[in-house]
Every structure is written in structure tokens, then in C-alpha cells.
Simulated assay, not measured.
Amino acid sequence: MDSRPPVPPFTPAGAALKVRLAEDGWNSRDPARVAQAYTPDSRWRNRNEFVQGRQAIEDFLTRKWQHEREYRLIKELWAHDERRIAVRFAYEWQDAEGRWFRSYGNENWLFDGQGLMQLRYASINDLAIDEGERHFHWPLGRRPDTHPGLSALGL
């Protein structure tokens, strides 16, 4: 059986670690790696798109990161209980025409007993920004531990 620690029931420290591990996975921009954090039949609502299953998640993320170039994400724990975590997030990206965007949103997650995500509901809004308004300036990949989070950036 797949297991993805930390597993429920979540403590404050375990929930915060789960959020950081999710952020790290998404910043890898590796659809196959990210999809492994979800149950085989995981269900998503992402904006206006409904996705179910690991292969559909992998396909979705492949399309997403082909469109959203220079993707850098920060997630922050908002709340949690034993099996649920709520996060807020922001990410910056560039489209094929070179325009920059910051996307803001909230996600609600539900986990199985092995720490795999069963449900993910994401609400996201996009804001066009000038390149000079960017805040996320680390090399592609994992956000450095020294880079400020959303609250420290005033986002």
C-alpha cells in the first residue's frame, strides 16, 4: 500500500510539514511525481475543471505546466483537523507571450489513512502583473528555506 507521511491524524506540525511537502512536489513540476501523492481514484475540482484518478491528474498537470511557464509556488497552512487541511497559496508564472501572472487561491484537502489525498478542491484567481512586481525569484525547483512565505511577503 502506498503511504505518504505525515499521515492522519494531523498535528499542527504534521499539517505544516504536509503543506510544505506538497509545495515542494508542485515546484518540481514533475506531473508523475506529484500524481503519486493522490489516491488512485482521487477527485479534484480545479477552477472549473473536474479531474479524477492519478492518470487524469498527471495529464492535467502536464497541460498546466506547458502553459504556465517559470512556475513558482508558495503554499501556507490555513487550518486543519485530523484528516483535512486547508491552505492558501500564490504562484507566479509566465505565458507563452511573455506576460507574467500571479495566481492566488485556496485549497481544501481530505486525506486517507495512508496520507494520500482523496479530495482536492481548488479556487484560483489570476492577476496579470508586470515583471517588476514579481516576488518569487528563486531558481526553478524547491523554494529555498530562507525565501519568505506568503505572510512575510504581505500576500
Rank of each mutant, 00 (worst) to 15 (best):
D2S: 14
R4H: 11
P5S: 13
P6F: 11
V7K: 15
P9K: 09
F10D: 10
P12H: 12
P12K: 14
G14D: 01
G14C: 09
A15I: 07
A15D: 08
L17D: 08
R20W: 04
D24F: 05
W26E: 03
S28W: 07
R29H: 00
A32W: 03
R33C: 15
R33L: 15
V34G: 12
V34H: 05
A35M: 10
T39C: 08
D41P: 10
D41C: 14
S42M: 04
S42N: 06
W44S: 08
R45T: 14
E49G: 13
E49W: 05
V51M: 11
V51P: 06
V51L: 14
G53I: 15
D59A: 15
K64Y: 08
K64M: 09
K64C: 04
K64R: 15
Q66Y: 11
E70N: 13
L73R: 08
K75S: 06
E76D: 07
A79T: 06
A86V: 10
R88H: 02
F89S: 02
A90W: 03
Y91V: 00
W93F: 03
W93N: 04
Q94G: 04
E97C: 07
E97N: 06
G98W: 02
R99G: 00
N108I: 14
W109M: 10
D112H: 12
D112C: 08
G113T: 15
G115W: 00
L119W: 08
L119C: 12
R120E: 08
I124N: 07
I124G: 00
A128Y: 02
A128L: 05
I129K: 01
I129P: 00
E131M: 13
E131V: 13
E131R: 09
G132L: 10
E133A: 15
F136H: 01
H137G: 08
H137V: 13
H137Y: 09
G141Y: 05
R143T: 04
T146W: 12
G149R: 09
L150R: 01
G154W: 00
L155P: 00
L155I: 05
